[in-house]
């Protein structure tokens, strides 16, 4: 599910943010596929289990919301955002998993365009997350799980957040505590919901003044925090060889300014995003521990956000450094 993360990230990052989503997705979505080797009996990876993921995401938009106004802008035409995301997950034990990831991203506009702006490329934000089981109830008919996660992210390079819509990310540090609840039948469908608040720090610009509903005499831009929430319906098919999920994901900033008319976005913008996602994760029997994941993501409503559509493909591989039976 790591792919989700990049997707989400892409959509948001265009006009607003990016890196926190990465973590969110990591925590919420990525973890699941990792475990999907043993889907019927676990939500977390087991002790000493590793999972690696490598995905590629291709997103683009040719419309965005300027405040509430959905518009086109030939200055930027269609903005493309692509990324490669390596990620690892590790089971400290059955109750506590750790995740780390670092995406490489590149952005550019389609030609011709009226702005002639250079795109950007580079490593974005390094993210680290822990996820813990709070509650687990299961029997042979089904299960209920309650989990909690905390993700942190920080820019891995000195990329400039104040270069939207081409910035790699918003250039700020983020902290996201989150609750995750899941319930499902032993075989087949499940539902999962999560809810958290993304605390966001400052994005350091390369100028000492900017306008954010008034003058700000500082190199620092205040990136607004946001509620993040989602609801996922999923099921396992074909003897647990294939997982399918459909998800709604929401983001809602709790402060910030609107993009001003025909002006560039900036990290201080108040962002709202409603999007849905479809995901298929296939685990071929021929290669133990391996998986292929494909995801489609589309923003259906927003405020100061890109109307982004993206597609990701990724490879997952899970293995244990303990012998079977030692877990």
């Amino acid at each position: 599910m790591f792919i989700f993360k990049i997707f989400i990230q892409n959509q948001r990052a265009f006009l607003r943010s990016s890196s926190a989503f990465l973590l969110i997705t990591l925590l919420i979505f990525f973890i699941k596929p990792v475990q999907s080797q043993t889907p019927s009996d676990a939500i977390m990876m087991k002790k000493m289990e590793f999972c690696g993921l490598l995905s590629y995401t291709n997103g683009q938009f040719n419309r965005y919301w300027e405040g509430d106004l959905l518009r086109k802008n030939k200055t930027i035409q269609t903005v493309h955002r692509q990324g490669v995301m390596p990620m690892v997950a590790f089971g400290v034990n059955k109750w506590l998993n750790v995740y780390a990831g670092l995406p490489y991203i590149w952005t550019y506009s389609s030609v011709p365009n009226g702005g002639y702006f250079a795109g950007a490329s580079g490593f974005q934000d390094f993210s680290l997350a822990v996820k813990a089981w709070i509650l687990e109830k299961s029997n042979d008919k089904g299960r209920i799980n309650l989990l909690s996660s905390l993700s942190l992210s920080t820019p891995a390079t000195k990329y400039l957040g104040d270069y939207l819509p081409y910035s790699l990310g918003l250039g700020d540090q983020q902290i996201l505590p989150r609750l995750i609840a899941e319930g499902g039948l032993a075989k087949g469908p499940y539902v999962r919901a999560s809810w958290g608040y993304q605390f966001r720090g400052y994005s350091k610009a390369e100028r000492d003044y900017h306008y954010n509903n008034g003058s700000v005499y500082s190199y620092y831009m205040d990136v607004p925090g946001a509620w993040v929430y989602d609801l996922t319906l999923g099921t396992w098919l074909f003897q647990n060889q294939l997982k399918f999920e459909a998800a709604y994901m929401g983001t809602k900033s709790t402060s910030g300014d609107d993009i001003r008319p025909y002006n560039a976005p900036q990290p201080t913008n108040r962002t709202e995003i409603d999007q849905y996602s479809l995901l298929v994760h296939f685990y071929p029997k021929q290669v133990k521990g391996a998986g292929i994941v494909v995801q489609y993501n589309d923003v259906i409503r927003g405020r100061n956000a890109a109307n982004m559509t993206s597609m990701s493909v990724g490879l997952t591989y899970q293995f244990s450094i303990l012998k079977q039976g030692n877990q």
């Binding site: 109750w95 506590l96 822990v130 813990a132 089981w133 709070i134 909690s148 905390l150 540090q173 902290i175 505590p177 605390f199 720090g201 400052y202 008034g214 003058s215 700000v216 005499y217 500082s218 620092y220 205040d222």
Partner: peptide, 29 residues
């Protein structure tokens, strides 16, 4: 309970970092 303990520590640390944020100046001080 270990896991919850760790989360508590991280959560507290988060709150501390968050509370350090200050308003940015809107005029020469």
């Amino acid at each position: 309970m270990k896991k919850i303990h760790l989360l508590n520590i991280l959560f507290t640390a988060s709150l501390l970092i968050i509370s350090c944020q200050e308003d940015l100046p809107s005029f020469n001080g």
